[in-house]
Amino acid sequence: MKYPWLDEYCKSKLGAEKDFKVEWDATRYLIGGKMFAMQGGDKNKKAIITLKCHPQFGRSLRKDYKDVVAGYYMNKEHWNSVYLDGDVPDNILKQMIDMSYESVLSSLSKKKQMEIIG
């Protein structure tokens, strides 16, 4: 994998939890019980991470980077998958992780958000 920092970066998010979903053969990163990132493989077992992005930003990334595709097994409007052996710059992938985390965090109830961020 080209991004050795990926796991630690996802786990470093405030309130982030990590689990492994056996049925999906995928590692999930959650906030408040909701997934903000999923690391697994495509139908050919090629390593990917799937993240939630604003639709316009996601479409732009798909145009700019061949290794960003519509979310694998996810809502294609909001989720994007990044091939982990590709050429997406670290700062762009971190931006995608940050956006996904913030998007899912903001979808939680205000009470739950306060429990997480204090």
Rank of each mutant, 00 (worst) to 15 (best):
K2A: 11
Y3V: 13
Y3W: 11
D7R: 14
E8D: 15
E8M: 00
Y9A: 03
Y9L: 11
C10T: 10
S12G: 09
K13Y: 06
K13I: 01
K13A: 06
A16K: 04
A16Q: 11
E17F: 03
K18A: 10
K21C: 08
V22N: 02
D25K: 14
D25R: 09
A26S: 14
Y29D: 04
I31F: 07
G32Q: 06
G33D: 01
G33N: 01
K34S: 09
M35D: 00
F36A: 01
Q39C: 08
Q39T: 12
G40K: 01
G41W: 01
G41Q: 05
G41A: 10
K43V: 02
N44W: 12
K45E: 12
A47H: 11
I48Y: 04
I49W: 02
L51T: 12
L51Q: 08
K52C: 10
K52M: 04
C53W: 08
H54Q: 14
F57V: 08
G58Y: 10
R62V: 07
K63F: 09
K63C: 01
D64P: 05
Y65H: 09
K66D: 15
V69R: 12
Y72R: 00
Y73A: 04
Y73M: 05
N75I: 12
E77C: 00
H78E: 04
H78L: 14
H78F: 13
W79I: 06
N80C: 11
S81R: 09
S81Q: 05
D87N: 15
D87H: 15
V88L: 04
P89G: 00
P89A: 00
L93P: 05
L93H: 08
K94W: 03
M96L: 12
I97G: 07
I97D: 11
S100K: 03
Y101W: 03
E102A: 15
E102S: 15
L105T: 04
L105Y: 09
S106W: 00
S107H: 00
L108W: 02
K111L: 06
K112Q: 13
Q113Y: 11
Q113N: 10
M114Y: 12
I116A: 13
